[in-house]
């Protein structure tokens, strides 16, 4: 069993999602090599080489690999595929974009969002927004998998593996990168944060997110999230969306503020260790899955909570 793990990175760092996908890849048994496709990505390759238990890093460096464009990256992976039994990527925007393209080029049916590895060819994955779990066995000889990162622990660093420089496979010329607006934040990344404070439509405005969610998130050292309703209303950026079609998270502590708890939202956070719900509606569905529920006006509770947290920290 030889597995190729596709690294999600920013040309400098390997993200946590990749570490979690590595844990899943290692559960399948056999060796794992990591592909770092990027531009001036030597540092990312070096970071990948320190991942615990990886056999080798394959570095492909070219301008057109710099922004994770699906077309050239998929061609590169397909060229490497004959040496591997499985191709694995984290279920991030990057992985979800590229891997099905690879699977189709290899004439393989992909297994999306693996949450459990039961055997090297048998996996569990959620369907219907996590309201059902399906166990599937792959009939294709080659496995192509994306890994739901909230379900696996992040692999730690170990001894350094060798880095092999690959020649690029050329650009396809059918897609070009124009620009990217990525917000750099000092907060923990939403999908790997230990604590998350999320706001819903009840917040009412982007200013209220800043005024009522952010201070509590600061006090907890937490990432900030949002319900789809809040994102659609423009109160929070789209990559904050937690839910079936947004990010799926499983922090130690999830604080849902003014979120009623539609099944699509619950699908994105119900595996959190401890859930706190703050809502003025005592019948809100979120209370049915919350460990601790506080009924009341969030605009009064949140400042009070911030004070209490700061007091208990000092």
């Amino acid at each position: 069993m030889a597995t190729l793990l596709i690294a999600d990175h920013d040309n400098t760092l390997i993200n946590d999602a990749t570490r979690k996908a590595l844990s899943a890849a290692q559960q399948m048994g056999g060796s794992v090599q990591v592909l770092v496709a990027g531009h001036e990505a030597q540092r990312a390759a070096e970071a990948a080489s320190r991942l615990d238990g990886v056999e080798k890093i394959l570095l492909a460096d070219a301008v057109f690999y710099g922004h994770g464009l699906a077309e050239p990256v998929a061609d590169l992976i397909v060229a490497l595929a004959p040496s591997f039994d499985a191709i694995v990527a984290p279920s991030t925007a990057f992985g979800k974009n590229i891997l099905p393209r690879v699977a189709a080029l290899l004439d393989v049916m992909q297994v999306s969002d693996v949450i459990r590895v039961l055997a090297p060819d048998t996996f569990e994955r959620p369907i219907y927004a996590g309201n059902a779990l399906q166990t599937v066995q792959v009939i294709d000889a080659k496995k192509v998998l994306t890994i739901r990162t909230a379900s696996f622990d992040a692999a730690a660093d170990g001894s350094a593996a060798p880095i092999e420089l690959l020649s690029d496979r050329g650009d396809t010329g059918i897609s070009t990168f124009v620009e990217e607006t990525v917000v750099k934040s000092t907060r923990p990344e939403l999908s790997s944060a230990k604590t998350i404070v999320s706001g819903g439509r009840a917040l009412g405005s982007p200013e209220h997110f800043t005024q009522f969610i952010e201070p509590v998130a600061d006090a907890l050292g937490a990432a900030m999230g949002a319900s789809r309703a809040a994102v659609d209303a423009g109160y929070a950026p789209n990559d904050w969306q937690v839910g079936q079609t947004g990010k799926v998270v499983a922090p130690d502590l999830y604080v849902a503020v003014g979120i009623s708890g539609a099944i699509q939202h619950l699908a994105g956070m119900k595996d959190s260790k401890v859930i706190v719900a703050i809502n003025k509606d005592p019948d809100a569905p979120i209370f049915q899955i919350a460990d601790y529920g506080l009924v009341g006006d969030l605009f009064e509770i949140m400042p009070e909570l911030q004070k209490a947290l700061n007091a208990s920290a000092s």
Binding site: P126, Q134, T135, I139, D140, K270, G293, L294
Partner: peptide
């Protein structure tokens, strides 16, 4: 190309407790 072996219900979460104050 995938053989569905079984479809199961996820482990449910039970409602916890209501607290009275911050």
């Amino acid at each position: 190309r995938l053989k569905v072996i079984t479809t199961t219900e996820p482990a449910g979460r039970v409602a916890g407790q209501k607290v009275a104050s911050v």
